[in-house]
């Protein structure tokens, strides 16, 4: 009876994860139980290690297992460019693309009057201090193309107006595989404004 209670507790916890509900959590736990040696024990060990060691990078806010994340610790990435992203997931997305060779700054959210998230909660003063102290040449605002994301981008641009760094933002327009017929008016307008010689 105690064992069943433990398994039910595990299912309840798994069901709280993104992408999983009670039924899919039950299936996942069953799969783990069937591969206790090959999958469940190593997974439990890995989770215990990460839970023990994971911490926010003290410079950029990325998640790592030491005080400095691998990106901030890598001298080759001291290019004088800082890419500002909303969340660690966005940082990982940028890293997947392998197009950016500089360093990051993770805000941890966007300004939101409704949720009482202000500049201090996002560490924007810390970003301003970092840009000044690191002699940054360019700050790339890679924030989401949402009202909250762009409001935050404008706020950061204003906060950095006195610095020597150039402020840029990601381009907005037609995504790869996008069809004009399915794009909203604003995206088409942004793409048209950002047109270039072909």
């Amino acid at each position: 009876m105690d064992d069943t209670r433990d398994i039910e507790a595990l299912i309840d916890l798994m069901a709280r994860l993104p992408g999983l509900g009670p039924r899919s959590a039950r299936r996942a736990v069953l799969a783990l139980l069937k591969k206790r040696g090959q999958l469940m024990a190593p997974l439990a060990q890995a989770m215990a290690n990460v839970a023990l060691n994971a911490r926010d990078c003290m410079v950029c806010g990325n998640i790592g297992t030491s005080e400095l994340c691998p990106i901030c610790a890598d001298p080759a990435r001291a290019t004088g460019e800082i890419c500002v992203v909303e969340d660690v997931a966005d940082l990982w997305a940028m890293e997947r693309g392998q197009a950016f060779k500089g360093r990051y700054h993770v805000l941890g959210g966007t300004l939101s009057a409704l949720d009482s998230v202000g500049p201090d909660e996002l560490g924007i003063p810390r970003l301003v201090a970092r840009v000044a102290s690191e002699g940054t040449r360019e700050v790339i605002l890679a924030l989401n193309a949402t009202v909250d994301g762009q409001t935050t981008a404008h706020y950061i641009a204003d906060a950095l107006a006195g610095s020597a760094a150039q402020i840029t933002s990601l381009a907005q327009g037609v995504p790869v595989g996008g069809e004009l017929d399915y794009l909203d008016d604003g995206t088409i307008g942004a793409a048209l404004r950002a047109r270039r010689r072909f």
């Binding site: 193309a145 009202v147 762009q150 909203d184 008016d185 604003g186 995206t187 307008g189 942004a190 404004r193």
Partner: peptide, 8 residues
């Protein structure tokens, strides 16, 4: 009518 043009 979407107002994404205001974001800039």
């Amino acid at each position: 009518h979407l107002r994404s043009g205001l974001m800039a």
